[in-house]
Amino acid sequence: MAQTEKAYWSSRTAFILASIGSAIGLGNVWRFPYICYKYGGGAFIIAYLVSLFLAGIPLLILEFALGQRIGGSAPVAFAKLSKKFAWIGWLAILVGFFITTYYAVIMSWAANYLVYSFKLSWGSDPKSFFFDKVLGLTDSIANFGSIQTHLVIGLIIMWVWIVLSIWKGAKTVSKVVYFTVTIPWLILITLVTGGLTLPNAFEGIKYYLTPKWSMLLKPQIWQAAFTQVFFSLSVGFGVMIAYASFLPPKSDLVNNAMIIALSDAATAYVGGFAVFSVLGYYAGLQGVEVAKVMKSGPELAFITYPEIINHLPLAPLVGVLFFLMLLTLAIDSAFSLVEGFVAGVMETFGTRRGRTNIFVAAVAFLIGIIYTTGAGLYWLDLVDHYMTFFGLFAVGFLEALVVGWFTDTEKIREMINAHSIVKIGKWWNVAVKFLVPIASIVLLLSSVIGIIIKPYGGYPRWAELVGGWLLLAIAVILAIILGKQTVKALKVKSSEG
């Protein structure tokens, strides 16, 4: 394997900020509040915290250990555990790569909306504006319509931003995250403060926080809580493995994992106040229940929020702040996914960083053009469902299975504890051996069964085959081929060394 330029974090704070930035994304603002409302308000928050401590934090510690103690990007770390596991590392970063191809398109939407905010271009009908003017949405997934030039321009800008953010790996990221992590937090606090001063804001907050304890007895709430934890922490994409590989040898992994996981959860929790306060206000204006105006995902950000912004004082400023927050929330997640992939490519093929960055970005950009067509939203929705529900849970399951059952878990725990102030007990072994694999396989199987019974989103079966199963099959086949390459590269390196 050729020598590659390995960079380290400039400080512990830089690593923590980068990992928090990776974990915090659009989901903290547009998914968590909705799921919370849907599954019992405050009861869901409690279920979420329990899931975080039982599965999320142990899995995060596991990924840090793989990257820092075992060493290397996801493919290399798994190859070092055993030659036959290298493909799992590749599967993780390939899933992350496919996600970035459409995540950058969502960022392009937000970038366009940032510009629209100055003149409130969405007017009095944000729904038609979003679907017809911005997306040029067609009537079906088979009808691609035309490529939306403004989205392609936005996409190019987003990819330039992503590549520049990781240009020299951890060295550049160490500087960038001081801005991209703190800016969205400052804006979030501003939006929460402003939101809470609106009339009827507390009616919205009541919807958010009032616990319906009976929900805790339903398996769906636990399924949703574990899913949200998996989604939110950026585990299962090889990102945290790559980031931890840039840490110096004596780092406290347990403490880092606690700060990062809790900060991510705290952001989602505070994000709920930003969303529900304005929904309470909007519901009051409309004279309806908060439930009637509650939305999630792109609909919340690009239709409901602009509609609400129309009624707020200093509307253009609120719009600019809101979409700038979305952009800065998303950029860290996007470049961390790319960095995880780039690190794997560099360590396997010995390629130079600059060229690898550009090559990966160019391929991802070209794939991303599909999502800028008139059928882009449909494909994005479909691919997202398959990549997150199947890719993420499958990788989470495989990771815990490998470490829990095919390696000496106790030895890994001792390695983690060697430099940690707060030592993790044997409960971690139980979590990694049983809890994480069981939780992820249950989530995976329930998703598969759900899809078999009813096609996701009502899309035709052929579209599911292409955008779902075919893409997953490509990811698995590529992972197996590239895994062999990583093993070869490690052999060459050890024979040279």
């Binding site: 512990r12 308000g41 405050g42 928050i45 409690i46 915290l49 907050i205 009541k206 958010y208 926080l209 009032t210 616990p211 304890w213 406290d252 403490n255 606690m258 700060i259 809790l262 900060s263 959860a265 705290a266 929790y269 102030i421 707060v422």
Partner: peptide
């Protein structure tokens, strides 16, 4: 009390922000 939104507010705030502050204090002591 247990069915009040304030209950969730106190529990979640203490666990999340208390946990972050505690973890940072521990890290600084090292």
């Amino acid at each position: 009390m247990f069915t009040s939104p304030w209950f969730t507010f106190v529990i979640a705030s203490v666990v999340l922000f208390g946990g972050i502050i505690w973890s940072i204090i521990i890290a600084k002591r090292k």
